[in-house]
Design a protein around this nucleic acid. Structure first.
Lengths: 336, 336
DNA sequence: CTGAAAGCGCTAACAT
DNA sequence: ATGTTAGCGCTTTCAG
């Protein structure tokens, strides 16, 4: 491994000069600097991030906390897309990514400890149980953090506009003549609470009285659960004319159930998803869904975090709202 | 930040003793060691991976090279699933993951340089252009590497059994009475070459003469391309009775095209995918596809790499074949 | 059993 | 314009 000292020796200069040349400091003869750089290049010099960090306390590493109970957080398109976006944006700024986890090396580390262990400059948190004491420990620590789809007081956040999302969906359904609207929700999280609140509010604005039997508790990304909820809805005396699902995967579970009953989408019953995964456009009929702008969410979160890291004084830990858009699709039928 | 020195001072001992206690060295009074550890715990000590690395040359960091032209490699379920599996397996062994990329911080770094910069102990390479000189530089370097779905001489690899996959598919099709089998391939990679070779071979074994018009060049994960290839196949005088697609996404593009022609799957024409993404089980009809064992691939690759890192002498850089399984599904119709 | 000291590769304040 | 030097936090010989 070639190091600064090697270059210094080869050039007959001090390591300080080499370091300066490599950083383009001004108090060095430009000729000398260029010479040093050419030698460095020729010798295949690559700086050592760890050695640098030890001195500067800056790792140029962004921690990413992305977990769920099933350890398959990355497999949900919404999150893998956000992650991909965080990765691309971070790299653009010269940062790398480190996944924060319960690092079971020799001994158990909490999220915060893991972040310290790897000296990350900041952490982006998404798709976790935000009530977890370890997550709270992390956001309350001195490490800059940005949360995605959740808001802590005084912590920067980037959130997809779930209120607007559900409002857009409901308004669209009303336009299409629907009033018997069922809603299968996701797990009980703040995102879900916002969606439900927006559902009631928008229904109210449209003078639609919500039938409580039409609200079913479901789970995110578990088609089977929404299939069951769908079955219950179909068993009602007064069936809904449209069912809203918590996400596009769940919608598929619902459609399967609907077809089992010999019904067709959207002729006999309409359905709406959420997320706007790529497949929602590939399926026939094209899925009616609210497309979350996952790429933008990742970009905003990363920019915010880097800003927080590099300009702690002038950056405020506010909330960034990212709006998506309704994909009208073909799974909602116009009534009357 | 509490460091070893702080603990040493608090205990009235030397930093050497503290370091030893923390590592459970035997040449230390057990009582003293336990005392030191309790103080460390109480003070909230977390080791500094970078400082340790500087001394030991071990980062406990695994580099992961995952790219494609569109910078969306992570969004393909096959790869995000492998990545998730690499992540989980690495963490189990006390390793973290660093994405290797063209790190555009101050100056451009090659993959190899980036790997050195971050001091990764080894690299897992997947989903890249394996002809890229930078990739070759990396695998030929002193850094331990494992490739996924590609084989270099003398480089450890973990590959999904594409030969068996296509064989299983073709044999199944033949059992179902098909002889007019079309095959839309993926990009021209070694994986594709293996699949095509296996296609010809298996057809031969079944005494089926392959009509060259039935072989179409396609692209992986681009439904539109396979849609077009499908259109060409449907325009033939003697249409195939079944079309094999390079992946499950592409299959959806094909189905869309088929339905545009007023044909139904599988009544009028059968289709087969590849990969076995989750959705392939959620769709109706359930997709007939070959399920690649992506989780196992990730686990094997990680284990191999760590073995290579920790036991360089005794570990051989061989090839590990991971087999999948045919998901019979419902998109292939039995003929006669 | 415990401690002193060297040094990993780098930066940056302080000389010269 | 260039060089000296003191660490960053840790491990690890080698002494005691």
């Amino acid at each position: 491994m070639v190091k600064i000292k090697d270059i210094a020796e080869r050039c007959g200069l001090s390591i300080a000069s080499v370091s300066k040349a490599l950083h383009g400091e001004s108090d060095l003869n430009p000729k000398t600097a260029e010479y040093i750089r050419s030698v460095a290049r020729e010798m295949g010099y690559v700086p050592n991030a760890s050695a640098r960090l030890l001195k500067t306390k800056r790792s140029y590493n962004v921690g990413v906390l992305f977990v769920d109970e099933t350890s398959s957080g990355l497999e949900h398109e919404y999150f893998s897309s956000i992650l991909n976006s965080i990765k691309n944006e971070s790299e653009k700024h010269g940062y790398d990514i480190t996944f924060i986890s319960h690092h079971f090396g020799k001994n158990y580390l909490t999220f915060y400890e893991h972040a310290k262990y790897r000296n990350v400059d900041g952490v982006i948190i998404a798709s976790v149980d935000f009530k977890d004491p370890e997550v709270i420990q992390l956001v309350e620590s001195e490490i800059p953090t940005v949360t995605i789809d959740y808001e802590f007081n005084d912590v920067a956040s980037v959130v997809s506009d779930n209120v607007q999302g559900v409002r857009d969906i409901v308004n669209f359904l009303v336009e299409m003549g629907h009033t018997k609207i069922a809603f299968i929700t996701g797990d009980d999280t703040s995102v879900t609470q916002k969606r439900v609140a927006s559902f009631y509010k928008t229904c109210g604005e449209n003078k639609i009285s919500v039938n409580d039997e039409y609200i079913k508790k479901g789970r995110y990304h578990i088609p089977k659960v929404s299939g069951e909820a769908t079955r219950e809805l179909l068993a009602l005396d007064e069936k809904p004319t449209v069912i809203m699902y918590p996400d596009d995967y769940s919608l598929l579970g619902g459609i399967t159930e609907i077809e089992k009953h010999g019904l067709k989408v959207p002729e006999d019953i309409s359905v709406v998803g959420y997320d706007g995964i790529k497949l929602s456009r590939l399926l026939r009929p094209i899925v009616t869904t609210y497309v979350q702008n996952s790429t933008e969410i990742g970009i905003q979160a990363t920019k915010k975090l880097i800003d927080l890291i590099e300009n702690p004084r002038t950056t405020i830990a506010d909330r960034t709202l990212v709006i998506g858009g309704l994909q009208q699709g073909e799974t909602v039928r116009k009534i009357k």
